[in-house]
Design a protein around this nucleic acid. Structure first.
Lengths: 208, 208
DNA sequence: AGGCGATTAGAAAAAATTTTCTAACTCAAT
DNA sequence: ATTGAGTTAGAAAATTTTTTCTAATCGCCT
């Protein structure tokens, strides 16, 4: 691993542990086993380190979205949630302190907002897919799905932060998935319940 | 208003605008029309200012909880949401950056966690009250209400932060209330729907 | 071996921020 | 008017944190 990568990786560790604003260059240098002067050689300033990390995060985020562009089945949704959870865990500092990061980097805010819009759209598509194939009930009145899509995005994105505040501990994958599925369950048709139960009993996660 | 109060009020304004960690003593002093030295006379250090604000917040929070200890009817819930919304708006800096504040003040974290537990319990009671009087359906399986109570707490507490990230703007009261009610609607009985519709049409909020 | 660019550590400087100090000011009670 | 406690502003000092500078080291190429 190059020094530059070591520094980024050390910074990520520090940010995740203490929150971006509480991390000093010295902490990062110590964690990376390098000197502060060396950090300055590889990055013009502290902001560049944060931005470097955000670029990585964003790249992986977009990759994730591409990979799970179409997720018609409950199994797919469940896998999507697992991938999202792991990604959020990896870049915790951003998801726990999004406001702090976007405040410090207006350019990040703009890009991230666009990304959010795409994610909300994806949830909307998931709702429509699954309504059309009969596992979810059609929305009782127009706008229900739009509202639910927002709530799905919010829950799937902020659940870690909520639990961090409430329980002073990061949630596990299972709790995370349950929180999101809980939003979908009320819409299940009989067929939907069947598929859900079947998924819960499916052995795919024995391979993990 | 005493200088001490002026300082707290100015600090609140600054914190709400820029986030606690981004506010300098000079900002607060300017906003209060006082000098930094004067701040130091009234508060031993910056932490004391933050703590002073949190104490006020907590007092009002507890007062709110007492006032709305029992909220059996939908009308009451709606009013509770209004009061909570206003309180959160007033002390935005805390609700938008809870993690930051609790990280900086471990004693705040402990107290706030206790408070959260009480709030979750209150939501649970609301669910049970309303099930028993026939406007909500009994939970399909045990634990549903417990999970929903958590989700109600999370939404009612973090909705502002979510919208701040997503839309770069604070939500209005109506959007806030809708987000919470959306969680309850799926549980309504026919009677519940009636009461809800009636409340939506009730003219009480014309007085606001 | 010698040279050379890239990398590194550590010190020094600079910048940002908080805390302490001091002298002056206000205003109520004498 | 005078006193004195409480209040205030502004400067100075201290502290914290980032950025710049310098000399030393490393590894590769000849």
């Amino acid at each position: 691993m190059s020094t530059k990568e070591k520094i980024l990786s050390a910074a990520l560790k520090c940010f995740n542990a203490d929150g971006m604003v509480n991390v000093r260059l010295q902490h990062i240098a110590d964690e990376a086993g390098k000197s502060v002067g060396n950090l300055a050689y590889h990055f013009p300033n502290k902001q560049a380190i944060v931005l470097g990390l955000y670029k990585k995060l964003e790249t992986e985020q977009i990759e994730l979205l591409r990979e799970f562009r179409i997720v018609p089945l409950f199994d797919n949704i469940d896998h999507l949630l697992e991938a999202v959870f792991q990604h959020q865990q990896t870049y915790r500092f951003f998801y726990l302190d999004t406001l702090e990061v976007t405040r410090a980097f207006p350019e990040v805010q703009a890009e991230y907002q666009k990304h959010i819009e795409t994610e909300v759209q994806q949830w909307l598509q998931i709702l429509e897919f699954n309504t059309s194939r009969g596992v979810m009930t059609p929305e009782p009145r127009p706008g229900c799905h739009a509202g639910l899509a927002l709530q799905l995005w919010a829950t799937s994105t902020h659940y870690m932060a909520q639990e961090m505040v409430r329980a002073a501990a990061l949630p596990g994958l299972q709790a995370y998935k349950t929180a999101v599925w809980n939003l979908l369950i009320p819409l299940f048709t009989k067929l939907g319940h069947q598929e859900y139960e079947q998924m819960l009993q499916s052995p795919y996660d024995l391979f993990y």
